[in-house]
Write a protein that binds this DNA or RNA. Sequence first.
DNA 1: CGGAAGATCCACT
DNA 2: GTGGATCTTCCGA
Length: 203
Amino acid sequence: MSPSKALPLRFYRRPTELVARELIGRYIVREFEGDRLVLRIVETEAYLGAPDRASHAWGGRRTARNESLYLPGGHAYVYFIYGMHFCLNVVTEGADLGSAVLIRAGEPVAGEERMLALRGLSRARPGDVAGGPGRLCKALGINRSDDGVRFDRGALKIVEGEPPSADEIAAGPRVGIDYAADAVAWPLRFAIRGNLHVSRPRL
DNA sequence: CGGAAGATCCACT
DNA sequence: GTGGATCTTCCGA
């Protein structure tokens, strides 16, 4: 079934837009209280750091909240937003740049029953479990205690998969960043074309 | 020190 | 389509 070989740190230490594209089709493997939860990544967004108005690292902003965003590629940046949701990012490139990829949606591969329970649902249509960054974190039991962990080992890994071909990946503007001036329209959102687990608005 | 806004989600009309 | 939930963070005064 799903492969178990974690991506090496060097995978992440490349241009952010490329990493965002190439994370599509990989698997997030989460060990949570004895359960193995697996999601296939179907949607990502690239955040480029200081030059990117939509990035938490815009203009070099650096605070206690986003400190882990400045770790070297391959670490997690988990932040709390809107008073109730967590979002999961994969730090990219080298240390101190503040570039990262937001994991926006995943397709359940294993442990779906447990993920449903974590989401507080009894049944779900495609996309309900992990279609959206807040839902995805809730389905995997991710919170601030996962901030700064490595993705190549431990209880929150990203492993190899079967990345779709380039023509199966759609690109478009990122979600929820209307304030981001010139960066509003940058096509840094990536998703598997036609996949039902992609968040709204669908690409 | 106060206010505003946020890389969201859900329920309701 | 609209607004409310809920709270941390940030910036301006």
